[in-house]
Computed example of a mutant assay.
Amino acid sequence: MFTTAWTASPQSPSTGFTPNWSQEGFWRQSLRQVVRLTAGGDRVRIRLSNVYGTSPLRIAGASLARADLGAAVRSEPVRLTFGGSASAEIPARAETVGDAAELAVEAGESVTVTLHLDAVTGPATFHAQAFATSYRGAGDLLDDTGGAGFDETTESWYFLSGVDVGAGDLSAGRTDGVALFGDSITDGFGSTPGANRRWSDALAARTGRPVLNAGIGGNLLLNDSAWYGEKGVHRLERDVLGRAGVGTLVVLLGLNDIGFSEAPSEPTYRPAPRVEAGELVAGHRELIRQARSRGVRVVGATLLPFGGSDHWGERAAKVSHELNEWIRRSGEYDGVADLHRALGAAGGADVLCGAYDFGDHLHPNDAGYQVMAEVVSSVL
């Protein structure tokens, strides 16, 4: 059996964040993406997603290698197959899982996945905010080792939604994986790009367990968004519960449901309904129900302080306090990570501590993400 060692939650093509290639797609190009694994093994397989594609996606070829600096690799690329074939065609609205390839990898190691896309892909299913660099170049670069052929860069991931690892005879896989489910804070906004300092990275290093990052910047618990992904209660099965080896789910979601209605100048999510704490509680209960139906333990994380941000207001204060108190005291979660208290400023519980503030009073910096990992590790 396999263990999922890396994930990125798919999103529909959009240009709402940093410049990306999702709407234009690819043609006669190779795409090299760098991902950091949180579990090791002696064989690797990839998962590719066309769930937001409107036509079949042709993969002319794919390869895997150990990452070096930039687009360079430090091992000869291993060619990947799909059902024994060097190429694959993924139907619209579908995913595919490749065959296992022999490559010994360690937890904490970065690998590259290179896709040759020789036919017009159309708009690409992608993950908007990678906080890591991906590379594009003309032609077939599957066997390129130096990286010189990749002359364009982006900070998004495309089509690649998962990497699994296996070890030994594959008779048993790990079941101690931790999936983090949330919005931009889980995604890693505010961390140093290219440095793997999201709180998912810190948690994997601290615990030695596989940690899957299922965050989407701007994501909401209760409503869909063209830019910010499907609502949490709908995407949990696809993005978390269907992954191999997940034993614990950590939920940190609801801040955007509350805060978007407080930001009248925010153009990215309209109309932004005003939600009540009871609606958010119902959403959290649905996530708990889905996870427990699959035998997954569920940890609830309180919303971080966000006073002074563009998400804050009198009503946001009231609803966020009510939701956090329910998470703390209801007993419905198997464990509670009180991030609100851990990251709050002294004497101002609704304000993010300055030492942990990225600068927008909403997102943590690298130090803040480290504290989050420490708090969550104590309740796993």
Score class of each variant (00 low, 15 high):
A244M: 08
L141G: 02
S110T: 09
E230L: 15
T96G: 02
T175E: 13
S184V: 00
F358D: 09
A167W: 14
G208W: 07
V211H: 10
D169Y: 05
G242M: 10
E89A: 12
A104Y: 09
E332M: 04
L103N: 07
L57T: 11
H127N: 04
G190L: 08
V73S: 07
F2H: 14
A345D: 07
L212D: 04
A130P: 00
W199M: 03
E332C: 10
F181M: 02
H311T: 07
V379H: 05
G25P: 08
L303T: 03
L323D: 07
L253F: 02
G61H: 01
A72R: 05
Q290L: 03
G16V: 12
A204I: 06
G247Q: 05
E279A: 05
R329S: 15
E237P: 04
P305V: 00
G300Q: 10
Q370F: 12
A39T: 04
L287E: 05
G188K: 01
T302H: 00
A337Y: 02
G166S: 11
A65M: 04
V120Q: 14
D183Q: 03
D151M: 09
P77E: 00
R209Q: 11
V44P: 07
S9G: 07
N365G: 04
V97P: 03
I59Q: 09
V211N: 03
T18G: 13
D118S: 13
Y369I: 06
S87V: 01
A67E: 03
A119M: 11
R315P: 04
R198K: 11
G247N: 04
W227L: 15
H311L: 11
V211I: 06
P305A: 03
Y369W: 03
N223R: 15
A119Y: 08
A205N: 06
A195N: 11
V165K: 09
A119T: 15
L180H: 07
D140L: 05
A342H: 01
G84Q: 00
T96N: 00
P210L: 00
S55G: 14
A5G: 09
G254F: 06
I327M: 02
L253Y: 01
A60C: 02
C353E: 15
V211P: 01
S87T: 12
R294C: 09
L31M: 08
K231P: 10
R93W: 03
T121R: 01
E152I: 09
